[in-house]
Amino acid sequence: MGNNHGSLKKEATQPQHSTTNNSKDEKKIDSRTEQSGKTLVDIPDDLMRKIIPYLGLIDRSNLAVTCRRFYEAEAKAGNSKNSEIWDSVGIDEKGKKVSMYKCFFEDVDDESGRYSIMRTKRMILSLKKTTPATTNAVIQRIFRATTATKMEKLEAAMQLNDCHSESQSEED
C-alpha cells in the first residue's frame, strides 16, 4: 500500500462521473450524493489524500481500484501505521521490532485469515532465537514474500522455514 504502489503509466485525470445511463446509476446507496449531485470525485486531490488515512487497508485497496485518480491518490496518501511498519520491515537490522511485526501480522490475520500470512507470522515469532544477521535476511524475504501473490508468499514462507533451520544449525 502507500508509496509502494509505484505508478501506472497514464496520468491521473480530473473527476470522472459516469456517463453511462445504466440501472446501477439509479441505485445510489447514500442519499447525500443523490441530493447534491456532488460525489467523492469532486473532492480535490489534496483533501482526498487527507481522508484516505482514515481508511483501513482493505478500504484503501478497494478505493484504489475504482479509478486511476483514486489509485494515485491512495499511493500518495499518508501511510497508516501498519503500512509504515510494513515498509520498514526490509530495513530493520537487528530484529528489535519483532514485537511490532507480531502486532502487524495479528492485524493482517484479523482481516484476511490467510494461511500464508499465518505461516509467515510463525516464522516471525521464531526469529527471536536467531542472530541479527539471519533475522534481517529472513525479514527481507518476508517483505518480498508478503508484497507478492498468495502463491509467492507461500513459497517464500517455505523458504523461510529452510532459512530458519539453517540459522538454528549455525547457532548450534
Binding site: 470522472q16 459516469s18 445510489k28 446507496i29 447514500d30 470525485v41 478505493l63 479509478c67
Partner: peptide
Amino acid sequence: TIANMIHGKKSDEIAEMFNIHCDL
C-alpha cells in the same frame, strides 16, 4: 464522516455509490 461512508464497501459498491467511472 466521509471515510465512514466508504468503509466496508467493495470497489464496485464505492464506484456505484459515488458514481465513479472507472478509467483503468
